[in-house]
Design a protein around this nucleic acid. Structure first.
Lengths: 228, 228, 228, 228
DNA sequence: GATGAATGAGGGTTCATTCAT
DNA sequence: TATGAATGAACCCTCATTCAT
């Protein structure tokens, strides 16, 4: 558990320890992805990691903290997989972000279903981690649309939007990807637009109006929308 | 545990037994509303019901079934509290339904936060119960809008809508009712419209179009929407 | 539980009560014949008797006593089924007794396997009951052979003989009656002879010698024994 | 619970663990020797072993398996205590075997009365273990007498013989060893002879006849038998 | 750092018995 | 007499954590 002195090369033992830590983390990620928190035992995790179960407390200070770490880990991966690209129209970047998000979920289906798209199974620690991740996602999107993510009228609708996306993704995964990613992205855009519209309905503002128009006219994948 | 003979007046003992059952059910509802399933012990419930813990198995055949019964109970109450009124414009009835839903959540805040607006903590029985309830809600709304609730293009968006409402309601409760019920109902309507729109975008149909127009023009509480 | 006053006709209630008692006794006999004592619950018995389980304690003063009563009942039946006939040579009467015993076991196979031929599952009360039954059986046989059942040198061998018969019968039942009853009776006679011989070896006595000769020469079903 | 690597010397911890295992096994042997399975609690065993009750599951995976292990253990001990000696006449070896058996029972009276000479209290695992042991015993004896232990006509009588010996030994122990071991061995021999005779009566064969003669003439401790 | 034996609180369930109706 | 709701002790087992090696 001793940190490698910064600047100095890690000793062999520290390297081995780090590997053990990773083995446990990976095994935990897998386990918590397959079964709810309460049904996963530290024994299961240690066994599937191939190490003594005592090490779990040694490296992570208890099951709950390990769970939180797992959540942090998957969040980290999700974030880096969906970081918004630097160029392209804002609409294209938005679509790219959503598509990347969905691809990540497909690539980590178990984790998606049980860790990402599921309300906190356990400890508050984990719950807060997810809050942070969601807020980050919301902020990126707002930034892309030149919106103030902290505007109080946006807060609620954006959470609604977020939950809608999660649930649609969840169902889509469960059903076996019954539509192309692009179509689901369309859905996301429509719900995002409705979030902005809801905010605008409550407190009209030019920024919201601009974002809404952009979403309704410039971002759509298909042109055959209502006015067509 | 013996059923009262139908048609015959229940004996005193059957009445007393039923009361005990209710005491347990109420205590369980309360307990499961405050803490996650795994953190509630049968001892807690029995103690707070003021009866011997053995009765829990006697009346409900185990903790898990009691939980399922609690979910069924709260669902029953929710359903009867939000049954759609018979008269008024469809818009008004929709708003009434949503408002009733929100009022119910306010009146049962703990249960709302931990049983209704939270993805199933436990047993599959409970989970399925919730699925049923949600589907029913969706169907009522579709019926009101003259939509086919079974249309495949509606399925996903409607679930997204549902999730969005749940999350917004959850956050609203948590924040301490930071806006009037009517405003939240407005949000619900906007998200409902977006669900219909998403379906229409995928598979345009006259019924969807009509529903969408009704939602966008005739249902709004405030007239100062986009076109104003 | 009130006994009918002797000499007076029993009231209807007493009759009904007696019937309930019998129902319970029969159900218990069946249950204890199928599963070991610890695996039979009073609920099982009451259910299969079709009465309230509270009655079990009412009529029999607890599970253990009911078990003892069951043992007594089956013993009573066994005794009356195997009472030694009044006429015929002693050899024939012996054979008749054994054959009747075996026929009884065949007719009550479950009870035989689990109550009669099995060492006491439970309470000492039951155990003593069986002791009594076995002693009775032994005494009848001794009487038939003009032996003193209380002679100390006979006690042990007779118990051995008894156990041997039980075990052979048990195995025979389990195997599916792989030989005719008569053949098994032959076995019994041979073992009985050896019991007498063992006693005689320890403490030679004319009575034993006579009994032994009778068993070895006069009782055999088949004549093709050793000396043939 | 980890096996010592074969060929490597066990570490101190493995030694300590093994000792704990033994403590539990001994305590269980003692407990099950004194009271029937259902009346022994894991708490009793752990307490009398002086260890935490959780260790019982840790080392033996539950009460039932521990019981089976106890049965296996006592069987192992019995077997090694009664292994038939290599030299001497077959009669002497037989007598030696029986005497050793009885001495073992005397030395482990409680276990004898409740585990060895008693029909299986519990689990099928245990029951089968005993079957194996008994069969082994029978086979050794048959081998000594040049008999085919698998001959169908021997099966039943040999079981009867076995049961008779058990019961006589049981009674003898209970009564307080009311006769010298040698006298009881005589009884055993007589009953063994009767088993062989019963088989011969059913299906005469030279091997049986030879064995019978050996038992009746050459093995007897006392010469003053019938023909004397 | 790694091991896994040891701990013991805590869990849910079963069940024979009691007793008011 | 019959009912079955109520009791609560007792059971076995699971499991996260600790700690000597």
């Amino acid at each position: 558990m001793s940190q490698p002195a910064p600047g100095k090369p890690p000793t062999k033992r520290q390297l081995a320890a780090e590997q053990t830590r990773q083995k446990l983390l990976r095994a935990a990620l897998e386990s918590f992805s397959r079964r709810p928190y309460a049904e996963v035992t530290v024994g299961d995790i240690a066994r599937s990691a191939g190490v003594a179960h005592g090490l779990l407390s040694h490296h992570f200070n208890g099951k709950e903290n390990l769970y939180a770490e797992v959540v942090r880990e998957i969040s980290r991966r999700l974030r880096s997989a969906t970081s918004i690209t630097a160029d392209g129209s804002s609409g294209a970047r938005l679509r790219g972000h959503f598509a990347a998000h969905l691809r990540f979920l497909v690539d980590h289906e178990d984790a998606a279903l049980n860790l990402i798209l599921r309300r906190g199974e356990a400890a508050d620690l984990a719950w807060e981690t997810f809050e942070v991740v969601r807020n980050e996602g919301t902020r990126s999107i707002c930034a892309l649309l030149d919106l103030d993510a902290d505007a109080p009228e946006l807060r609620l609708p954006m959470r609604g939007f977020s939950a809608a996306c999660d649930e649609m993704a969840r169902q889509w995964l469960t059903d076996g990807h019954t539509m192309p990613v692009e179509a689901l992205v369309d859905h996301f855009i429509v719900f995002l637009a409705s979030a902005v519209r809801a905010a605008h309905d409550r407190a009209p503002a030019p920024a919201l109006r601009r974002a809404l128009e952009e979403l309704e006219h410039g971002t759509a994948h298909r042109q055959d929308t209502l006015q067509a």
